[in-house]
Amino acid sequence: MDIKDIIKPENLVYDKTKVLTDNVMHYCPGCSHGVIHKILAEVIDEMGIQEETIGVSPVGCSVLAYNYLDIDWLEAAHGRAPALATGVVRLNPEKYVFTYQGDGDLASIGTAEIMHACNRGENIVVIFVNNAIYGMTGGQMAPTTLVGQVTATTPYGRELDLHGYPLKITELVAQLPGTSFVTRQSVQTPAAVRKTKKAIKKAFANVGQKKGTQFVEVVSTCSSGWKISPVASNKWMETNMFPFYPLGDIKDSEKETADKFKVQ
């Protein structure tokens, strides 16, 4: 069968969603952000909520996320995305509001904002992209950088005595009563992409049902920061990141009710 006979509109099975703009992404080749953006756009498209979705982009590589998803966006100061999202959702409770944050933004400079937004159970989706490095500023140590991992500010590898421990912030937010769905996923294989999409879709559906804070960590790569190829980055991630940041749902429940916390 000739290829020309296959490439026909009636045989189309996969195409770029219209929620993604035609802008060429500024990300490096192989960057996980592109895949996560695409998944988000597909979920928004499939749920038919483009008009009801408001995104909050962070400071970091994904600062320009608003160029790629065709929805209304707010661009936050470094770490403050959960506070912006709080302001949006409290005054517009009918909207699907999400933050998109990297490890530096969410787990370092924005720790207070993410903890308290999750603890209040703000009805938002949090997409947390953890690639254990600061990509935009040139590959410095992140709060999630592994011990021994080489970065621009840990040129001999992260040392415990000097830099402290890598932060498992997702496990921390799972402890907070305001979160209902907390999961850790990845996007390095087709199967992983499908699972992440399912998780993000569930998170948005939960927000539609006012279930509180939905937290989706995506363990990701940064081939430029790690200074290896995209394919090698996926392998490095599987070997080094997954044992410390294990994939799967950490919490899947209703947010806590008041009785447990009431004064007598």
């Binding site: 408001i54 936050a76 403050r80 506070a83 912006l84 959702v89 005054l91 904002e113 308290h116």
Partner: peptide
Amino acid sequence: ESEVASINMLYGGAST
């Protein structure tokens, strides 16, 4: 949780 969060909540609300 802080003044930092307060002013950024304003940014969120004002944007809408």
